[in-house]
Design a protein around this nucleic acid. Structure first.
Lengths: 204, 204
DNA sequence: AAAGTATACAGAATTATCTTCTAGAAGATT
DNA sequence: AATCTTCTAGAAGATAATTCTGTATACTTT
């Protein structure tokens, strides 16, 4: 794992050592074989733990997916949020958002790949609310910033439900492609292009 | 089904009636409960057919997913391709691409939703090649158009692996959001915004 | 420090689901 | 009409997820 502290932060304490270990093994397997082809028994075997223990911690395969998904999401948010908050103007907030997002994907390719794969599983399950709340957190502060820009006449007025797609859609699409080896160049190689494109997409 | 001829075109003939019927039922179930929660037995039951018949036609659950996926992909391409080919200039090609893509998603929300969900399953399986070929078909002609634009000085020169993301990333992201009810406005309500944003993203 | 409580670990048994297999019916081809 | 191919059928087998019951370990209270 590139950043060994992601799981330590999410599930701290010595008693959670086994839980963290299972999460790490699970992520590796999901990444290697895909979510569907990975079995609970396979994870149990590699993690050298017991079924009882796994079901104690996660309740179900879906539960394991959701746990991993939210660990990934929170790890991502921890990197992105400060960038938006600390920016001094709309353009800076956008550059911070996109820059830190691309940064995270390159730092945590396995978590990123997993998130794209698991999103539909998690969104279908009983975690919609927690997910919506996180999205709120991600774009809430940003939207305030954009409204400043609209008032100042530098950003175009449009339905607010459009901003998120216009800003991160391109970056996200490219990251997806990079994570499945359809393109070569690292997302962070093109940060300035994505920032510029996002800015042009919403500016006057 | 909004467009009842999609399956008729993909699997024509009276002998394929049952196969088509299974495909329709399967799509409805995947859409209702998600891919993972839908069982072969559930589809068999609703379609009032037999397991033997289903495995004869599709070989496996993955096979069923792949069959549906490529029917959807071809249906989409059938709408998009002519728009790119018939356009007279780069900007027209881009407008055609985005406009027809948004159009298709709104016409075929179930197929579109399914494609987003099934992509990772299909990409993991033994159909990478067929998928890559289709993508080639989708962006090959377009890239030629863009190169014209670069020569004429209206489009910025950049690594060609970037164009696809810069052009359709925003639209795709919004469609995803619309298909999972995170936003209200129909994608086609915002066609001109997405076309304009795409153009600005790659133009000089 | 002992008793009590909550948390974690263990694996056999059960249930759910996917897939294979064999057989026969319906349709096409000669 | 004989033969070949495609389609339908469902029972049996294989695989995977989940439940259940019991035990051990750590933490809390007295």
């Amino acid at each position: 794992m590139k950043n060994p502290d992601t799981f330590d932060r999410a599930e701290p304490g010595p008693r959670k050592a086994n839980k963290r270990h299972v999460l790490r093994v699970a992520l590796a397997q999901f990444d290697k074989d895909g979510i569907d082809a990975t079995t609970i028994e396979g994870i149990r075997d590699l993690a050298e733990t017991s079924i009882g223990s796994m079901y104690h911690h996660f309740g179900s395969k879906d539960g394991l997916l959701a746990a991993l998904y939210f660990i990934a999401l929170d790890d991502q948010l921890a990197l992105i949020e400060p960038q938006i908050v600390s920016a001094s103007d709309p353009r800076g907030a956008i550059a911070g958002l996109i820059g830190s997002y691309l940064e995270w994907v390159v730092q945590q390719p396995k978590l990123a790949r997993f998130m794209f794969q698991a999103r539909s599983y998690v969104a279908a399950g009983p975690h919609k609310d927690a997910l919506a709340e996180r999205n709120q957190r991600r774009y809430g502060t940003l939207l305030k910033r954009l409204r400043e820009g609209v008032k100042d006449g530098v950003i175009r007025q449009m339905p607010s439900e459009l901003y998120a797609s216009l800003l991160v859609g391109q970056s996200e699409n490219y990251c997806r492609a990079w994570l499945s080896s359809r393109v070569q160049g690292k997302p962070t190689d093109y940060t300035s292009i994505f920032v510029e494109a996002a800015w042009r997409s919403i500016s006057k």
